[in-house]
Amino acid sequence: MDALVTLRAVTKTYRQGEVDVPALRGVDLDIAAGEFVCLSGPSGSGKTTLLNLIGGLDTPSGGHIQVAGRDLARLSPGERAELRLRHIGFVFQAYNLIPVLSAQENVELVMELQGVGAAERHARARAILAEVGLAGLEGRRPAALSGGQQQRVAVARAIVSAPDLVLADEPTANLDSENGRRLLEIMRRLNGERGVTFVISTHDPEVMAFARRLIRLHDGRIQADERRDGPP
């Protein structure tokens, strides 16, 4: 199977004052379409940096990254934005939604940027919000939603346009256990039913338990890459 994401000898070093701080120290990784991958490791191990590099939000200090067949180093900021728009969905730990847009408008945002027509946008947004259990809350703005509801809106937005890849950075970190489990169920279903590839960074053992591939990072290196047959 062709890899959806390929990293070769990827390094990333941040400069803090006079000091160079390495975040990734030569990562080689292939992620195939349809995988459900968890990145785990202690704080500072490079999980978020790796997600940001795969999503083209940051540029590596060394090495090469390919996503959906495109070499990120060869793309301009505008082209990287276009790649994210067409192929990648993001879920962040918090502050995921645009505060001046309603839940439905937040979900429609990516489709609107893609140029999807209004009728189709409305229908798909309402359907996906119903799917994540938010029917009836479409008109609410983020401030009127709970943390769990906001994260589900963010997931709905990340998957509504059927991206090839969803990158989620600690998506359950700010949720209680019930909302966290509910969110994971949604992701697993999307992965199983729609073949959406998930790459999730987490500390949460429950999330790791869902993964079919668990990659452990330590000090900017892949310490372990474990594949499983399926979640329990």
Binding site: E82, R86, N96
Partner: peptide, 8 residues
């Protein structure tokens, strides 16, 4: 966030 979502 807009940039991450694909806004040019």
């Amino acid at each position: 966030l807009f940039l991450a979502l694909g806004m040019r």
